[in-house]
Amino acid sequence: MQHFVLEQALNLLIQNGSIDIKPLESKVIRFTLVDLLPDVNFICTNNRIFVNSDTSTSSDVEIKLRPNVFFALFKGEDLTDLLRQDKIHIHGDVKTAQLLVDLLSTTELDLEELLSQYTGDIVAHEMGKTAKKIKQVVKQSPNPLEALKDGLSELLIQPKVSKKYTNSHH
C-alpha cells in the first residue's frame, strides 16, 4: 500500500510540473531503508515513476541507509557529507542517486507518518493513517474528487502484495 501511495504522490508531482524526472529517464534505482521497509525500485520511464518491489532485477544504483539518515536527507543534510560519514551506502551511479535524493526532497509527503506504521500499533491506526495519506494526495491533485474516489477505493479493498511475491523468479 505504501508503494501505491508513494507512486501516486510522485506521479502527481510530475504531472503538476513540481518535479522533473527527465534526467532520470530509463534509470532503475533500488532503495533500501534498513530494518524498516522492504527494498523498492524506482523505475523512471516514459516521464513517470513506477514504484516496484521486484528486487530480482538489475538496477542502475542501489541506495542503502537507515531511517534516521533518510529523514536527515529530507531535512537538508548533504548527500556527500553523509557518504563521507559512511551513513549511506551507494553502489552504482552516484549522480543518479543524487538526482533521486533531490527529487524526493521536493515532495511534501509526510514520510515519517508514512513509515511509522511499521513501528507503531499497525492495526489500530491503519485506517486513520491511510485516510491521512489520501488527504495528502487529494490536496495535491488537480482533480480532488477523482483523487478522493481513487484513494477511497484503495482504502476499501486494501490491496496487499502476496507473501508469495517475495519468491524470486528469472
Binding site: T57, I157, P159, V161, S162, H169
Partner: peptide
C-alpha cells in the same frame, strides 16, 4: 498469480508485480 507473473516476464516485460484484491479473489 505467480504463474501469470512469470508469463508476463516471459513475454518480454522488464518488471512485473501483482497486488491481490479482496483476499486474492482478484489480482492486478
Amino acid at each position: 498469480q505467480e504463474t501469470l507473473k512469470d508469463m508476463v516476464l516471459e513475454a518480454g516485460f522488464g518488471f512485473c508485480e501483482y497486488h491481490n484484491l479482496s483476499g486474492g479473489i482478484v489480482a492486478l
